[in-house]
Simulated assay, not measured.
Amino acid sequence: MSSLNFTTASHPPTFLLLGIPGLEKEQFWIAFPFCITYALGVLGNIILLIVIKTEPSLHEPMYLFLAMLACTDLVLPTSMLPKMLAIFWRGSKEIGFVACLVQLFFVHCFAILESGVLMAMALDRYFAICHPLRHSSILSTQVVAALGSLVLLRGVLMVSPTCFLLHRQDFCQHHVISHSYCEHMAVVKLVCEDTRVNAAYGIAVAFAVAAFDLTVITVSYTMIVREVLKLPSSDTQIKAFNTCVSHSCVILVFYVPALFTSLTHRFGHSIPQHVHILVGNLYMLVPPTLNPIIYGLRTKQLRDKIVLLIQWKGT
Protein backbone atom coordinates (compact mmCIF):
# COMPACT_ATOMS: atom_id res chain seq x y z
CA MET A 1 0.00 0.00 0.00
CA SER A 2 2.85 2.39 0.80
CA SER A 3 4.32 1.67 -2.64
CA LEU A 4 0.97 2.51 -4.22
CA ASN A 5 0.76 5.78 -2.30
CA PHE A 6 4.26 6.67 -3.37
CA THR A 7 3.51 6.30 -7.07
CA THR A 8 0.13 8.09 -6.94
CA ALA A 9 0.61 11.82 -7.38
CA SER A 10 -1.90 14.62 -6.85
CA HIS A 11 -2.32 16.44 -10.15
CA PRO A 12 -4.51 19.49 -10.69
CA PRO A 13 -7.05 19.02 -13.49
CA THR A 14 -6.01 22.33 -14.99
CA PHE A 15 -3.47 25.13 -14.67
CA LEU A 16 -4.04 28.83 -15.17
CA LEU A 17 -1.60 30.61 -17.47
CA LEU A 18 -1.39 34.30 -16.57
CA GLY A 19 0.21 35.44 -19.83
CA ILE A 20 2.55 38.34 -19.06
CA PRO A 21 2.14 39.38 -15.41
CA GLY A 22 2.39 43.15 -15.09
CA LEU A 23 1.26 43.74 -18.67
CA GLU A 24 -2.29 42.38 -18.45
CA LYS A 25 -3.80 45.51 -20.00
CA GLU A 26 -1.27 45.57 -22.82
CA GLN A 27 -1.53 41.85 -23.68
CA PHE A 28 -4.39 42.36 -26.14
CA TRP A 29 -2.26 44.68 -28.28
CA ILE A 30 0.98 42.75 -27.80
CA ALA A 31 -0.74 39.76 -29.40
CA PHE A 32 -0.96 41.52 -32.78
CA PRO A 33 2.80 41.81 -33.48
CA PHE A 34 3.23 38.29 -32.07
CA CYS A 35 0.61 36.98 -34.49
CA ILE A 36 2.11 38.86 -37.46
CA THR A 37 5.59 37.59 -36.59
CA TYR A 38 4.30 34.03 -36.38
CA ALA A 39 2.46 34.32 -39.72
CA LEU A 40 5.58 35.64 -41.45
CA GLY A 41 7.63 32.81 -39.96
CA VAL A 42 5.17 30.15 -41.10
CA LEU A 43 5.01 31.64 -44.61
CA GLY A 44 8.80 31.94 -44.91
CA ASN A 45 9.51 28.43 -43.68
CA ILE A 46 6.83 26.86 -45.89
CA ILE A 47 8.30 28.67 -48.92
CA LEU A 48 11.76 27.34 -48.00
CA LEU A 49 10.45 23.79 -47.72
CA ILE A 50 8.61 24.03 -51.07
CA VAL A 51 11.66 25.43 -52.87
CA ILE A 52 14.04 22.84 -51.40
CA LYS A 53 11.65 19.96 -52.13
CA THR A 54 10.86 20.95 -55.72
CA GLU A 55 14.39 21.96 -56.81
CA PRO A 56 16.71 18.93 -57.30
CA SER A 57 19.82 21.14 -57.32
CA LEU A 58 19.08 22.04 -53.68
CA HIS A 59 19.12 18.43 -52.49
CA GLU A 60 22.50 18.99 -50.87
CA PRO A 61 23.48 18.67 -47.18
CA MET A 62 23.33 22.43 -46.53
CA TYR A 63 19.77 22.73 -47.83
CA LEU A 64 18.62 19.44 -46.31
CA PHE A 65 19.73 20.73 -42.91
CA LEU A 66 18.00 24.02 -43.71
CA ALA A 67 14.81 22.04 -44.43
CA MET A 68 15.15 20.40 -41.00
CA LEU A 69 15.57 23.84 -39.46
CA ALA A 70 12.44 25.05 -41.27
CA CYS A 71 10.40 22.09 -39.97
CA THR A 72 11.64 22.79 -36.45
CA ASP A 73 10.79 26.47 -36.84
CA LEU A 74 7.23 25.53 -37.82
CA VAL A 75 6.66 23.25 -34.82
CA LEU A 76 8.39 25.32 -32.12
CA PRO A 77 6.20 28.47 -32.19
CA THR A 78 3.08 26.49 -33.13
CA SER A 79 3.39 24.52 -29.89
CA MET A 80 2.77 27.65 -27.81
CA LEU A 81 1.39 30.57 -29.85
CA PRO A 82 -2.24 29.45 -30.40
CA LYS A 83 -2.78 29.08 -26.64
CA MET A 84 -0.92 32.35 -26.02
CA LEU A 85 -3.23 34.20 -28.41
CA ALA A 86 -6.25 32.63 -26.68
CA ILE A 87 -4.97 34.05 -23.38
CA PHE A 88 -4.25 37.50 -24.78
CA TRP A 89 -7.42 37.92 -26.88
CA ARG A 90 -10.07 35.77 -25.20
CA GLY A 91 -8.82 35.47 -21.63
CA SER A 92 -8.83 31.68 -22.01
CA LYS A 93 -6.21 30.95 -19.36
CA GLU A 94 -7.03 27.35 -18.45
CA ILE A 95 -4.89 24.50 -19.77
CA GLY A 96 -5.25 20.84 -18.84
CA PHE A 97 -2.52 19.11 -16.86
CA VAL A 98 -1.69 16.64 -19.65
CA ALA A 99 -1.96 19.37 -22.31
CA CYS A 100 0.50 21.45 -20.28
CA LEU A 101 3.02 18.59 -20.14
CA VAL A 102 2.60 17.99 -23.89
CA GLN A 103 3.23 21.67 -24.60
CA LEU A 104 6.24 21.63 -22.27
CA PHE A 105 7.61 18.59 -24.08
CA PHE A 106 7.28 20.07 -27.56
CA VAL A 107 8.65 23.49 -26.56
CA HIS A 108 11.82 22.12 -24.95
CA CYS A 109 12.32 19.15 -27.28
CA PHE A 110 12.23 21.28 -30.42
CA ALA A 111 14.38 23.99 -28.84
CA ILE A 112 17.03 21.29 -28.27
CA LEU A 113 16.41 20.00 -31.80
CA GLU A 114 17.00 23.48 -33.26
CA SER A 115 20.29 23.73 -31.40
CA GLY A 116 21.32 20.33 -32.76
CA VAL A 117 20.44 21.29 -36.34
CA LEU A 118 22.49 24.49 -36.05
CA MET A 119 25.41 22.37 -34.84
CA ALA A 120 24.98 19.99 -37.79
CA MET A 121 24.92 22.95 -40.18
CA ALA A 122 28.21 24.20 -38.73
CA LEU A 123 29.75 20.76 -39.35
CA ASP A 124 28.43 20.88 -42.91
CA ARG A 125 30.10 24.27 -43.51
CA TYR A 126 33.34 22.92 -42.02
CA PHE A 127 33.48 19.93 -44.37
CA ALA A 128 32.32 22.02 -47.36
CA ILE A 129 35.09 24.62 -46.91
CA CYS A 130 37.91 22.67 -45.27
CA HIS A 131 37.41 19.33 -47.10
CA PRO A 132 35.51 20.19 -50.29
CA LEU A 133 36.61 17.11 -52.23
CA ARG A 134 35.34 14.77 -49.51
CA HIS A 135 32.27 16.78 -48.56
CA SER A 136 29.71 14.80 -50.57
CA SER A 137 31.14 11.46 -49.51
CA ILE A 138 31.32 12.36 -45.81
CA LEU A 139 27.89 14.01 -45.63
CA SER A 140 25.87 11.72 -47.86
CA THR A 141 22.07 11.81 -47.79
CA GLN A 142 22.09 8.81 -45.43
CA VAL A 143 24.50 10.56 -43.04
CA VAL A 144 22.42 13.75 -43.11
CA ALA A 145 19.28 11.74 -42.30
CA ALA A 146 21.13 9.92 -39.50
CA LEU A 147 22.33 13.21 -37.98
CA GLY A 148 18.83 14.61 -38.13
CA SER A 149 17.44 11.50 -36.44
CA LEU A 150 20.11 11.64 -33.73
CA VAL A 151 19.48 15.26 -32.79
CA LEU A 152 15.72 14.55 -32.68
CA LEU A 153 16.29 11.47 -30.52
CA ARG A 154 18.55 13.52 -28.24
CA GLY A 155 15.78 16.05 -27.69
CA VAL A 156 13.20 13.36 -26.94
CA LEU A 157 15.47 11.52 -24.50
CA MET A 158 16.54 14.70 -22.71
CA VAL A 159 13.08 16.24 -22.28
CA SER A 160 11.07 13.08 -21.50
CA PRO A 161 12.45 12.74 -17.93
CA THR A 162 11.24 16.26 -17.06
CA CYS A 163 7.68 15.31 -17.99
CA PHE A 164 8.01 11.97 -16.17
CA LEU A 165 9.23 13.67 -12.99
CA LEU A 166 6.44 16.24 -13.04
CA HIS A 167 3.82 13.55 -13.64
CA ARG A 168 4.92 11.70 -10.48
CA GLN A 169 4.98 14.72 -8.18
CA ASP A 170 2.36 16.35 -5.99
CA PHE A 171 1.21 19.87 -6.79
CA CYS A 172 0.06 22.50 -4.35
CA GLN A 173 -3.33 24.17 -4.32
CA HIS A 174 -1.75 27.11 -6.14
CA HIS A 175 -2.21 26.21 -9.82
CA VAL A 176 -1.34 29.56 -11.42
CA ILE A 177 1.61 29.57 -13.86
CA SER A 178 3.18 33.01 -14.14
CA HIS A 179 3.98 32.58 -17.80
CA SER A 180 2.28 32.56 -21.19
CA TYR A 181 3.11 28.91 -21.92
CA CYS A 182 4.09 25.81 -19.94
CA GLU A 183 7.80 26.33 -19.41
CA HIS A 184 9.60 23.70 -17.31
CA MET A 185 10.78 25.81 -14.38
CA ALA A 186 7.52 27.80 -14.29
CA VAL A 187 5.63 24.51 -13.77
CA VAL A 188 8.21 23.17 -11.29
CA LYS A 189 7.50 26.15 -9.00
CA LEU A 190 4.00 24.75 -8.40
CA VAL A 191 5.27 21.41 -7.03
CA CYS A 192 4.87 20.93 -3.26
CA GLU A 193 7.71 18.40 -2.95
CA ASP A 194 11.46 18.90 -3.05
CA THR A 195 12.25 20.13 -6.58
CA ARG A 196 16.04 20.14 -6.41
CA VAL A 197 16.19 17.15 -8.77
CA ASN A 198 13.96 18.94 -11.29
CA ALA A 199 16.00 22.14 -11.12
CA ALA A 200 19.34 20.33 -11.27
CA TYR A 201 18.26 18.19 -14.22
CA GLY A 202 16.87 21.20 -16.10
CA ILE A 203 20.02 23.28 -15.73
CA ALA A 204 22.20 20.25 -16.51
CA VAL A 205 20.35 19.62 -19.78
CA ALA A 206 20.47 23.31 -20.74
CA PHE A 207 24.22 23.59 -20.11
CA ALA A 208 25.04 20.19 -21.63
CA VAL A 209 23.24 21.04 -24.88
CA ALA A 210 24.59 24.58 -25.07
CA ALA A 211 28.15 23.60 -24.11
CA PHE A 212 28.37 20.68 -26.54
CA ASP A 213 26.68 22.36 -29.50
CA LEU A 214 28.43 25.71 -29.06
CA THR A 215 31.80 23.97 -28.69
CA VAL A 216 31.28 22.09 -31.96
CA ILE A 217 30.09 25.29 -33.66
CA THR A 218 33.00 27.36 -32.32
CA VAL A 219 35.63 24.77 -33.28
CA SER A 220 34.07 24.36 -36.74
CA TYR A 221 34.11 28.08 -37.45
CA THR A 222 37.59 28.52 -36.03
CA MET A 223 38.84 25.90 -38.47
CA ILE A 224 36.84 27.52 -41.28
CA VAL A 225 38.37 30.95 -40.61
CA ARG A 226 41.88 29.46 -40.55
CA GLU A 227 41.25 27.69 -43.84
CA VAL A 228 39.68 30.73 -45.52
CA LEU A 229 42.61 32.94 -44.57
CA LYS A 230 44.90 30.58 -46.47
CA LEU A 231 43.01 31.11 -49.73
CA PRO A 232 45.03 33.09 -52.30
CA SER A 233 42.16 35.10 -53.78
CA SER A 234 40.37 37.80 -51.79
CA ASP A 235 37.23 37.21 -53.84
CA THR A 236 37.25 33.56 -52.85
CA GLN A 237 37.76 34.55 -49.22
CA ILE A 238 34.82 36.94 -49.33
CA LYS A 239 32.59 34.32 -50.95
CA ALA A 240 33.57 31.74 -48.34
CA PHE A 241 32.94 34.18 -45.50
CA ASN A 242 29.56 35.16 -46.94
CA THR A 243 28.38 31.55 -46.88
CA CYS A 244 29.00 31.54 -43.11
CA VAL A 245 27.69 34.99 -42.20
CA SER A 246 24.03 33.96 -42.45
CA HIS A 247 24.63 30.93 -40.26
CA SER A 248 26.46 33.05 -37.69
CA CYS A 249 23.53 35.50 -37.54
CA VAL A 250 21.07 32.65 -36.99
CA ILE A 251 23.25 31.22 -34.20
CA LEU A 252 23.38 34.57 -32.36
CA VAL A 253 19.65 35.19 -32.74
CA PHE A 254 18.91 31.73 -31.27
CA TYR A 255 21.45 31.28 -28.49
CA VAL A 256 21.56 34.76 -26.91
CA PRO A 257 17.86 34.88 -25.85
CA ALA A 258 17.87 31.13 -25.12
CA LEU A 259 20.71 31.44 -22.61
CA PHE A 260 19.20 34.63 -21.17
CA THR A 261 15.87 32.86 -20.57
CA SER A 262 17.45 29.76 -19.04
CA LEU A 263 19.77 31.69 -16.72
CA THR A 264 17.12 34.21 -15.66
CA HIS A 265 14.94 31.42 -14.25
CA ARG A 266 17.74 30.40 -11.90
CA PHE A 267 19.79 33.49 -11.21
CA GLY A 268 18.05 36.59 -12.58
CA HIS A 269 15.71 37.30 -9.69
CA SER A 270 16.30 41.04 -9.99
CA ILE A 271 15.06 41.09 -13.61
CA PRO A 272 11.36 42.12 -13.86
CA GLN A 273 9.14 39.13 -14.56
CA HIS A 274 7.47 40.70 -17.58
CA VAL A 275 10.87 41.33 -19.18
CA HIS A 276 11.85 37.69 -18.66
CA ILE A 277 8.56 36.40 -20.12
CA LEU A 278 8.68 38.79 -23.08
CA VAL A 279 12.20 37.63 -23.94
CA GLY A 280 11.03 34.02 -23.59
CA ASN A 281 8.17 34.68 -26.01
CA LEU A 282 10.40 36.48 -28.50
CA TYR A 283 12.93 33.63 -28.26
CA MET A 284 10.19 31.28 -29.46
CA LEU A 285 8.95 33.56 -32.24
CA VAL A 286 11.79 35.69 -33.63
CA PRO A 287 14.38 33.04 -34.67
CA PRO A 288 11.80 30.97 -36.65
CA THR A 289 10.79 34.17 -38.43
CA LEU A 290 14.28 35.49 -39.13
CA ASN A 291 15.85 32.19 -40.20
CA PRO A 292 14.14 31.94 -43.63
CA ILE A 293 14.63 35.68 -44.20
CA ILE A 294 18.35 35.55 -43.38
CA TYR A 295 19.00 32.45 -45.47
CA GLY A 296 16.70 33.57 -48.27
CA LEU A 297 18.42 36.95 -48.61
CA ARG A 298 22.03 35.89 -48.08
CA THR A 299 22.13 32.58 -49.99
CA LYS A 300 22.17 33.47 -53.70
CA GLN A 301 21.24 30.02 -54.98
CA LEU A 302 18.26 29.86 -52.66
CA ARG A 303 17.27 33.46 -53.31
CA ASP A 304 17.24 32.90 -57.08
CA LYS A 305 15.04 29.81 -56.73
CA ILE A 306 12.57 31.67 -54.49
CA VAL A 307 12.33 34.51 -57.02
CA LEU A 308 11.67 32.00 -59.80
CA LEU A 309 8.98 30.31 -57.72
CA ILE A 310 7.25 33.62 -57.00
CA GLN A 311 7.41 34.65 -60.67
CA TRP A 312 6.01 31.24 -61.72
CA LYS A 313 3.14 31.55 -59.21
CA GLY A 314 2.40 35.05 -60.50
CA THR A 315 2.00 33.98 -64.13
Score class of each variant (00 low, 15 high):
residue 264 T to K: 03
residue 232 P to C: 01
residue 205 V to W: 03
residue 168 R to N: 13
residue 314 G to M: 02
residue 217 I to P: 00
residue 6 F to V: 06
residue 138 I to F: 04
residue 304 D to W: 00
residue 213 D to E: 06
residue 259 L to E: 14
residue 309 L to S: 02
residue 278 L to I: 15
residue 206 A to H: 08
residue 103 Q to L: 10
residue 152 L to V: 08
residue 25 K to W: 04
residue 91 G to Y: 10
residue 132 P to N: 11
residue 29 W to H: 07
residue 83 K to A: 07
residue 151 V to H: 14
residue 272 P to E: 03
residue 54 T to M: 08
residue 169 Q to T: 10
residue 4 L to H: 08
residue 297 L to C: 14
residue 215 T to F: 07
residue 233 S to I: 02
residue 75 V to C: 08
residue 264 T to P: 00
residue 114 E to L: 11
residue 104 L to F: 15
residue 69 L to D: 12
residue 51 V to R: 00
residue 303 R to T: 02
residue 11 H to N: 14
residue 19 G to R: 01
residue 264 T to E: 09
residue 166 L to W: 12
residue 113 L to F: 15
residue 225 V to C: 05
residue 19 G to L: 01
residue 313 K to A: 02
residue 146 A to S: 07
residue 263 L to I: 13
residue 37 T to F: 03
residue 234 S to V: 11
residue 299 T to R: 15
residue 56 P to S: 06
residue 49 L to Y: 10
residue 18 L to Y: 00
residue 189 K to E: 15
residue 247 H to N: 12
residue 229 L to F: 04
residue 54 T to K: 15
residue 16 L to K: 05
residue 256 V to C: 06
residue 20 I to E: 01
residue 15 F to Y: 06
residue 131 H to R: 13
residue 57 S to C: 13
residue 254 F to P: 05
residue 308 L to Y: 00
residue 285 L to A: 09
residue 209 V to W: 04
residue 182 C to M: 07
residue 314 G to D: 00
residue 253 V to D: 02
residue 8 T to I: 10
residue 103 Q to C: 11
residue 237 Q to F: 03
residue 66 L to C: 09
residue 46 I to A: 08
residue 296 G to N: 08
residue 174 H to T: 05
residue 255 Y to R: 02
residue 125 R to P: 03
residue 67 A to N: 10
residue 147 L to A: 05
residue 102 V to Y: 12
residue 161 P to Q: 03
residue 184 H to I: 12
residue 291 N to L: 08
residue 101 L to Y: 11
residue 140 S to N: 01
residue 167 H to N: 13
residue 271 I to K: 05
residue 222 T to P: 00
residue 232 P to N: 05
residue 284 M to Q: 13
residue 191 V to N: 06
residue 8 T to L: 11
residue 31 A to Y: 03
residue 169 Q to S: 15
residue 96 G to R: 09
residue 267 F to A: 10
residue 214 L to F: 01
residue 35 C to G: 09
residue 24 E to F: 02
residue 191 V to H: 07
residue 229 L to Y: 03
residue 104 L to A: 15
residue 49 L to F: 09
residue 122 A to V: 05
residue 113 L to V: 15
residue 207 F to R: 08
residue 188 V to D: 04
residue 288 P to K: 10
residue 147 L to P: 00
residue 178 S to R: 14
residue 81 L to Y: 05
residue 49 L to A: 13
residue 127 F to A: 06
residue 27 Q to G: 01
residue 1 M to T: 06
residue 35 C to V: 05
residue 128 A to W: 07
residue 155 G to K: 08
residue 116 G to T: 10
residue 282 L to S: 05
residue 13 P to S: 11
residue 211 A to H: 04
residue 53 K to S: 14
residue 248 S to K: 02
residue 78 T to S: 14
residue 70 A to K: 03
residue 51 V to F: 00
residue 184 H to P: 04
residue 300 K to W: 04
residue 149 S to H: 06
residue 104 L to Y: 12
residue 199 A to E: 12
residue 135 H to E: 05
residue 105 F to P: 11
residue 11 H to C: 11
residue 70 A to V: 06
residue 128 A to Y: 09
residue 182 C to E: 05
residue 54 T to N: 15
residue 309 L to H: 01
residue 200 A to Y: 04
residue 243 T to E: 14
residue 198 N to W: 01
residue 87 I to R: 11
residue 88 F to E: 10
residue 154 R to A: 13
residue 55 E to D: 14
residue 70 A to C: 05
residue 81 L to M: 15
residue 245 V to I: 11
residue 95 I to Q: 13
